[in-house]
Design a protein around this nucleic acid. Structure first.
Lengths: 265, 265
DNA sequence: CGCACGGTTGACCTGTATCAAGCCGGGTGG
DNA sequence: CCACCCGGCTTGATACAGGTCAACCGTGCG
């Protein structure tokens, strides 16, 4: 009801007074002062650790909608923490087909794929105008030798990504179209809610085709499945604006594979 | 021709003289002396770093075929380096369906999923009698603060797993059954070859059903696809023994999605 | 030796892809 | 300011890959 109707991801997440040093499209900043810190940095730091942490971020960088933050093949230097905006990452096979591997929003870290071979293996594309904090990876390395909490945090972020991908594999390997879309919507809205947005309304930043790529479906199937959910009164869909009317129904769709032995909801 | 016909993964990989301290089913050991080191540890270490590295591994542990090294929900303490044997990891959804997320062999590291929340989120099951090196994670943390190469190595291992999973997502999201199985066989045989086995012959350690789960297919489809490859003279299949006759054909199957615009092989 | 599990194969079914036509809405240029 | 255009979306008709169900087989283990 009184929840944010979200026209922009920036709502509720506007920083107060960061140190800004303009440098073309990038600027210097401080984590210690950023209210996304609890999303991308470790919690429970001592005051002196907090100050050290500021050294992690070199500069900010703006990324215009439709442009890439990094591309497959580019050399890897830094991880990026998303401050505002929305990204997709996708891998491309030699034969040209590609696969969206994830959608990332404020507070999430991208670029982890580049560590292993010092160059990126996927593209990160801004789906809306965005701003990221550039965190040079060797600096992260140095600092995490001194600040244990940061070391553990880096490990956790990478582990979290591995676990997330396990979930995607489960989805792609064993779910049907409706289950996939339901899981997708629940995941998106849950992450948005953690950022202060509504738990029932969302604006999709990506096309049906991009959703389809992520979910291993064709765009027509995504569209039809949205329509089916709408007919059943589970969601309202108007273009990219989605209102979830019956979250329970979505959850039941995801968790029910075999409904003949249906345990009580 | 004269390549190892592989009846056991231990062939070519037998250690010379490790420090063994028996402790029921586990024993103390030294990495510095292990000839799998180049697979699971960083290369180019100085002699003193090499000695420090020995502190990473606490003990070895034997895992009987069909038993688990760890299970979903168990508390996370250690990563494991596989010394001998073959594992699968799988995640299980609340509704019971499960998904094989990977197959792991000698030199590979498992348990990374447990870092983020201090408990494991998948099961690791030995598909043949196995032995692993137990590496307590807090010890890895301490040491990697002192040995830069180890720190970077841990990051690379996690990043590699993320990139591998991107590849699986591409496979599950956009490939057809034949492409999936061809990619699977090529991947397996390539990893085995890196361990000194034949590049054309392999013994599958897993059932058709497990292959199917990994590839997002039913076991019947896996079986039929094997038969199809056999009919076409691409492979010879006798139960779990597979001989790859035409590697090029497998590669073409994987890389050709659109063959109407077929570029030359 | 026999049983049970893993694997193969066949017949049929269905969910999703494919192909195609049309619609909607927002941005642009006249 | 309106008309047009184009990209994104919806919807329908049809095709097909892979799933499902079922029968049978082989083999390796107890």
């Amino acid at each position: 009801m009184n929840e944010t109707p979200m026209t922009s991801h920036e709502v509720n997440l506007i920083p107060s007074s960061d140190t800004l040093l303009f440098d073309g499209h990038s600027m210097k900043v401080a984590c210690s002062n950023c209210n996304l810190r609890e999303l991308c940095m470790p919690v429970g730091l001592s005051p002196q650790e907090l100050i050290r942490i500021d050294e992690v971020v070199a500069v900010r960088r703006k990324v215009k909608r439709g442009t890439t933050l990094f591309r497959n093949g580019e050399s890897f230097q830094s991880l990026f923490a998303i401050r505002t905006g929305f990204f997709k990452t996708c891998v491309t096979a030699e034969d040209g087909r590609d696969q969206v591997t994830g959608f990332q929003m404020a507070g999430e870290i991208i670029g982890l794929d580049g560590i292993v071979n010092d160059h990126h293996t996927c593209d990160a594309v801004a789906l809306e105008d965005a701003e990221v904090c550039v965190m040079p990876f060797d600096r992260i390395g140095e600092l995490s030798r001194e600040v244990n909490a940061l070391q553990h945090h880096v490990h956790r972020i990478m582990s979290r990504e591995i676990v997330r991908e396990h979930g995607v594999m489960l989805l792609l390997g064993s779910m049907r179209a409706e289950e996939r879309l339901a899981a997708f919507l629940l995941n998106l809205v849950q992450r948005l809610h953690a950022r202060g947005f509504s738990r029932s309304e969302l604006v999709l930043r990506m096309t049906r085709e991009e959703i389809g790529s992520y979910l291993g479906l064709k765009l027509e199937t995504v569209s039809r499945t949205f329509s089916k959910f709408a007919e059943e009164g589970i969601v309202e869909v108007r273009q990219r604006h989605v209102r979830i009317i019956d979250t329970g129904a979505l959850r039941r769709i995801v968790n029910q594979q075999d409904l003949q032995l249906g345990r009580p909801a």
